[in-house]
Nucleic acid binder design. Structure first.
Lengths: 346, 346
DNA sequence: TTTAGCACTCTCAACCCTTAAGTGCTAATA
DNA sequence: TATTAGCACTTAAGGGTTGAGAGTGCTAAA
């Protein structure tokens, strides 16, 4: 890694700051004018040339000013995260906006997350995203099997964190409610406290073991269980497309197409958030830091939400790399904190 | 209404057809070249001028060809709906694509509808939409109230058409599972066969009657019921944004913004589809025929899906007014028919 | 080490011009 | 009388030129 002199840092910071506020390439004159270094444009020019050599800045073309590279943004983000220089009145907005909307939804985390994305995007003018926890951190709560019409079984699954999942299964030879209750009881005692990844593994083992015995009745029950327990836990919520379309960064049709494809391919975002949600606290991914190539022109800010010390979701923002990181990070952090607080202290 | 000569009709039809295939204003020369009328451009010009006077065509500017107005498209749609001139191999695509994907989802209509939108948009390159039925046509099936943790009640509601809805309620003084069972039993017997609109009305009456008596226990139960039965039934599914962004009609940034706003304001589309879903069969709404002003530049094709003679959803396509109506109508109609068949004959 | 000066580069908007497409009107034609 | 050929007119779009403006890198002076 390069070592930057204190002065270079200040200039780099100023360039990024200016570009974030104003979507025009930043020239040496602007830097001297908007930020009072005691230096002439020529000197700034030299510094900026150095910063370009080091990979922090780049030029759209020879006679334009400079704009930050992803590395430049990274420097910026790393230096603000310790500061926290956003006006505090956003917080009040957040609290008010969220409080009224979400208070009602305490008991429905999925709806709560989905509403949160709206609030996030409204506050930030970026894409609000949220995701409910993956099966490897979702803990089994309770299962109910309800007979429904003659040949159908409704599966109602409670996760430990208060989500309810349901589905209908068709069972070819009828099963009585009594038998269903017994199966449910078995599952409840067997799987209490396990995550769904663990449960799946256990079931898989069970089934392969069972095959040797060839007991059709038990194997039927096992298959039923497997089906009954298969749900998509990772639900992704996104909103605010019309917000980001107002940004100059998405004035280009191709950029919009890329973004809309990225949004539609939820699977990919889920995978990404999944990986990120393992870490604690606020996380910022800038442009090509992202391994997923289709997201290499956008940045992502995420933070997990908790209830007690169980994770109940991830919230975040997606925007252009030229993003108001300070504000966006502030919003994400406080939204996550707010939800955590609300869920924990009830 | 104007009376059109047979010849004028043919010209109008040709103009619309040409413009749909080719997004360029249609001139008199093109008409004579692409469609063999035994007439010279000058004559066609006269006819087209008449058609413009009558409001079927319009000119982007003086020296351009003509493009259809919404009225022009309307004429076109009305004249093809009796014909059906789409190559039949789309049908095979539809059946194959849908069959494999949807067969599994017979028991989950909401997932089925959501998957259907993807298939619709992939086939048509327009926006695929689908909506589950509104509370005024959704019939109560069965309710289960399950005690869950000490102060929570999980409501699991089965609609007549096989949807399952659930939510968690917080109840301040605990209620025993036994009492919950009694309440559920009461609701099941009381509301069997009613639509949710009817149920809400009945409950409202019940509650106002109850107030005079001031029996807190019953009133608590009633409030619980009211909460327990309040769900959003109208679920809207949309997909294929990235498909429509490829169309030349949405090359303009403002058009995209409008569209994305329309998509995000699901409430409005729901209201619209709701109104449309009352009618039988395929319905086409072209541009400003739509009363909702924000949708005045796009067209909408919808058709209800049924199971037996109960409506289980609406499917459709949203696209620019310059839409391949023949193909789109064909796709929507057959998709709806396919789903209806699949659900009915199981 | 910093800065002033200057030549150089590049984009962007404005402008002009030409081309091409298409129109409406009029007068000739079948 | 309906159709058509001919023609003048309109307009958008593409291409080329030009000048302004912004910004740079380099050099030489402070």
């Amino acid at each position: 890694m390069y070592k930057l002199s204190e002065r270079s840092k200040k200039v780099l910071y100023a360039v990024v700051q200016s570009y974030i506020n104003y979507p025009d390439p930043v020239g040496s004159r602007i830097v001297t004018k908007r930020y009072s270094f005691g230096l002439s444009p020529a000197t700034i020019r030299n510094i900026m040339a150095d910063l370009e050599d080091m990979g922090f800045l780049t030029q759209p073309h020879t006679s334009a000013g400079r704009i930050p590279t992803d590395l430049g943004y990274r420097f910026y983000v790393d230096s603000i995260s310790s500061k926290g220089d956003v006006s505090a009145n956003i917080e009040i907005e957040i609290l008010h906006g969220l409080y009224n909307r979400l208070q009602v939804l305490k008991n429905n985390i999925e709806l709560l997350l989905s509403e949160t994305t709206k609030s996030l995007s409204a506050l930030s003018h970026y894409l609000g995203v949220a995701m409910s926890p993956a099966p490897d951190v979702t803990v089994f709560g309770k299962i109910n099997l309800l007979k429904y019409q003659s040949d159908k079984v409704a599966v109602v699954l409670f996760t430990d964190d208060g989500r309810i999942k349901n589905k209908t299964l068709q069972v070819s030879p009828e099963i009585s409610q009594k038998d269903l209750n017994r199966i449910a009881q078995y599952l409840n005692s067997e799987f209490a406290g396990l995550t769904f990844d663990e449960i799946r593994m256990r079931l898989l083992k069970e089934i392969s073991k069972d095959k040797t015995k060839c007991d059709t009745l038990i194997s039927r029950a096992l298959n039923l269980c497997r089906e009954a327990l298969y749900f998509t836990f990772n639900e992704l919520f996104v909103s605010g497309l019309s917000e980001v379309l107002e940004l100059p960064d998405f004035a280009d049709l191709n950029k919009i197409r890329e973004l809309s494809k990225a949004i539609e391919d939820k699977h990919m975002i889920i995978k990404l958030l999944d990986k990120l949600s393992e870490t604690e606290g606020l996380k910022v991914i800038i442009g090509s830091e992202n391994t997923v190539s289709s997201l290499k022109d956008i940045s992502l800010i995420v933070s997990p939400c908790k209830e007690g010390d169980r994770q109940v979701g991830v919230v975040g923002l997606i925007g252009p790399t030229r993003m108001n990181y300070a504000k966006a990070m502030y919003i994400v952090e406080n939204t996550a904190r707010f939800i955590t607080k609300m869920l924990t202290e009830r």
